[in-house]
């Protein structure tokens, strides 16, 4: 079972990213669950969501305490939340950032400037860049889901073609 924890702020699309990722994995023929952890927070507060992907049906409902992959959609959260907590040995961190993590301490750290990609595609809603579709492209490049399934999942949930473009741009931009 591959376990992913997504950190974002309320309103940034972390929950939708989790749903899209689960849907893409599902379209790959895998079993997948997405569960946002709901607190009492309002817009702007740090939130986490969880995605599990497996070849077997998934029976776990509890939170993910030892993720294989941590996704950080807003690096400003790292000032208040220990995003690396519980990350498995050999686990991966993905940041929405133009820069890698300063201290990786042996973890594999990947990054793409998703915000830049969203802005370049003019993917902005109510003043905020859309991060949940481009991040899927990056995850495809990392081999967690396939690019065709990403495209399909995005098309199932969003009509605007720029979302797929943004995902492809992130796919191209990520260096593996």
């Amino acid at each position: 079972m591959y376990e992913i924890r997504i950190h974002s702020r309320g309103g940034q699309g972390g929950v939708t990213a989790a749903k899209l990722l689960a849907l893409a994995a599902f379209r790959d023929g895998k079993h997948a669950t997405a569960c946002p952890f709901y607190g009492a927070e309002r817009r702007g507060a740090p939130v986490v969501s969880f995605v599990r992907i497996d070849d077997q049906p998934i029976k776990v409902y509890s939170q993910i305490h030892e993720p294989d992959l941590v996704i950080v959609l807003d690096t400003s959260i790292m000032d208040v939340v220990d995003v690396l907590q519980g990350l498995k040995d050999g686990g991966t961190v993905f940041l929405n950032s133009a820069h890698a993590l300063e201290e990786c301490n042996g973890t594999c750290c990947r990054h793409v400037d998703l915000t830049g990609i969203a802005l370049a595609q003019d993917l902005v809603v109510a003043g905020s860049p859309i991060l949940n579709t481009p991040v899927l492209g990056a995850l495809a490049k990392m081999g967690i889901v396939t690019l065709p399934s990403v495209e399909q999942a995005i098309q199932e949930m969003f009509a605007d073609e720029r979302n797929v473009k943004a995902a492809k741009a992130a796919y191209e931009e990520l260096k593996v």
Binding site: L23, H31, A32, T33, A34, C35, Y38
Partner: peptide
Amino acid sequence: QDGFALSHIMQS
């Protein structure tokens, strides 16, 4: 059904 634990989780 369990609040959040099932009501808000995505499965097939």
